[in-house]
Amino acid sequence: MRRLTKKKALNLVKELDAFPKIPDSYVESTASGGTAFTFMALLAFLEFFVYRDTWMKYEYEVDKDFTSKLRINIDITVAMKCQYIGADVLDLAETMVASDGLEYEPVNFELSPLQRIWQLTLWHIQERLRVEHSLQDVLFKSALNIAPPSAIKNDDSSAPLNACRIHGHLYVNKVAGNFHITVGKSIPHPRGHAHLAALVSHDSFNFSHRINHLSFGEMIPGIISTLDGTEKVSTESNHMFQYFITIVPTKLNTYKITADTHQYSVTERERVINHAAGSHGVSGIFMKYDISSLMIRVTEQHMPLWQFLVRLCGIVGGIFSTTGMLHGMVGFLVDIICCRFKMGIYRNFKVSVVLLTDYALL
């Protein structure tokens, strides 16, 4: 056996390759491969935005808190002078809550242009909330510190102070009750309570009002309650406005805020008091509220990292598998069409077959 020289042995080792070679077609740059990679990168980029987004989870349970007090946040403007009206709360247990936490501020009932812009903005938001319920989730997550319309003062100092803004908060028992604003200041009474309305002339009655803000529970920035921005204008002096409110305790837990608050739904009713026509009652603004036995727990949730990675792997693997199947199917159809109509590489296929046949006969 002839011995190999050192140089030949080195060349033989270099040429020796025990690993299989990748076909050249696998490393060629194709338009389909670039399209698949671009589509895969786009889906992965969009999936990252889904991972960064959060959503609100709603859970329902029985409210077991019966001992705590309920806070009522009030900001209402009535088109009567402050000395003519009084506000208080009477609950189902015949307990009258003093209105020491409320302030009576003489104001002008007409809004300034800037205040009117706030009012129209609130109306627009309330209208959209009735249609797009998911906007409430956006308000929960945003926690924007939005000032109410009443916080903007009217710069017109010459305007008459013909209205009274009642604002503040009260703590009441967690039972059904009635918050009302009517003629005369309230006084205690052995059988309930009464209002000194005899000294007020009927000509000064005007219960046109604007609810700047009404909420229950802890004040939360950015939350717009159902009655915020409500405005009622009456042309009659004896008019009764009624709001039947159902309060739902809500525990809110987001990445920006954690609070115990309350949501509510409302049914409105109003009528003119005319004893001669059989419409009896007391003129004023009455808000009768009741508390639901169910509690809503609203929690902001986020996609976990492991789920994002699994979804990302699914996107990459799914695109590779799908594009591979589509590429094979399209290639198979192209081969059939080209073979049938003698196109492409199949154009000279018949001539080659004839030449091979003649060569075999020879």
Rank of each mutant, 00 (worst) to 15 (best):
M96G: 07
A79P: 00
I76W: 05
L42V: 06
S68L: 04
F19E: 15
G101I: 10
K81H: 03
S68P: 01
L42G: 09
S99F: 00
E28F: 04
D100R: 00
F49D: 13
A79C: 07
E59K: 08
A79M: 02
L70K: 05
A93L: 00
R52N: 15
G101E: 05
A93D: 00
L92P: 00
A18T: 15
F49G: 09
F66W: 13
V13E: 11
Y51C: 12
L46M: 12
M56W: 01
R71H: 02
M56Q: 09
Y51E: 12
K14M: 15
R52G: 11
L42T: 05
A98R: 01
T95R: 04
R71Y: 04
T67N: 10
A87V: 11
V78C: 12
V62G: 00
E47D: 06
R71D: 01
M40W: 07
L43H: 06
E28V: 09
I76Y: 02
G33M: 05
A93T: 02
F66Y: 14
E47N: 14
K21W: 09
A98G: 02
P20D: 08
V27W: 01
M56N: 10
Y58M: 13
T35C: 06
V50P: 03
T30L: 07
T38R: 01
T77S: 12
T38K: 02
G33I: 10
Y51R: 05
F39E: 02
K14W: 11
F48E: 10
L43T: 14
